[in-house]
């Protein structure tokens, strides 16, 4: 059986709603991927633990709280500590271009998507890069 792309979709931080995360989870499922959905208010440590146990190729995070500059460096640091650098990290949320540049350059984030991003774009990016970690 061919390897299915496995994606952990999580919603770190303290803001309440996970509509965006659910929409992306469904889009990825409809694209034939296996989505492990972990729900709200995940800490970076919880996300990494789940990603390790589930052996995912991709971590997709939805962050609307504005805490991306504290959460994402922590996520990438923990991934390195666990020798999981081959896991692709993709982020959706309201993130300025300046922050996105720093996250991609210094913190192992492969792609940042704003509220207007098309699902098709995200799906193709993940298909192409799953399991390859940082995209150069």
């Amino acid at each position: 059986m061919e390897h299915k792309i496995r994606v952990l979709v999580a919603k770190p931080g303290l803001d309440g709603h996970d509509r965006g995360a659910k929409v992306i989870a469904r889009a990825l499922r409809d694209a034939g991927m296996e989505v492990i959905y972990t729900g709200l208010q995940q800490t970076p440590a919880m996300i990494i633990e789940a990603a390790l146990q589930e052996d995912v190729d991709v971590i997709g995070l939805s962050i609307l709280s504005g805490a991306h500059m504290t959460l994402l460096p922590k996520v990438s640091q923990l991934l390195r500590e666990q020798a999981m650098d081959d896991v692709l990290v993709v982020v959706g949320g309201i993130i300025s271009d300046a922050d996105a540049t720093i996250l991609k350059r210094d913190h192992g984030v492969a792609a940042v998507y704003g509220p207007g991003a098309s699902m098709q774009e995200i799906v193709s990016f993940i298909r192409e890069h799953a399991g390859s970690g940082r995209v150069s």
Binding site: K4, A25, R26, L28, R29, D30, A31, G32, M33, E34, V35, I36, Y37, T38, G39, A50
Partner: peptide, 9 residues
């Protein structure tokens, strides 16, 4: 699609 959403966690 052959995909799945696994939500038990």
């Amino acid at each position: 699609s052959g995909g799945a959403i696994l939500g038990d966690r």
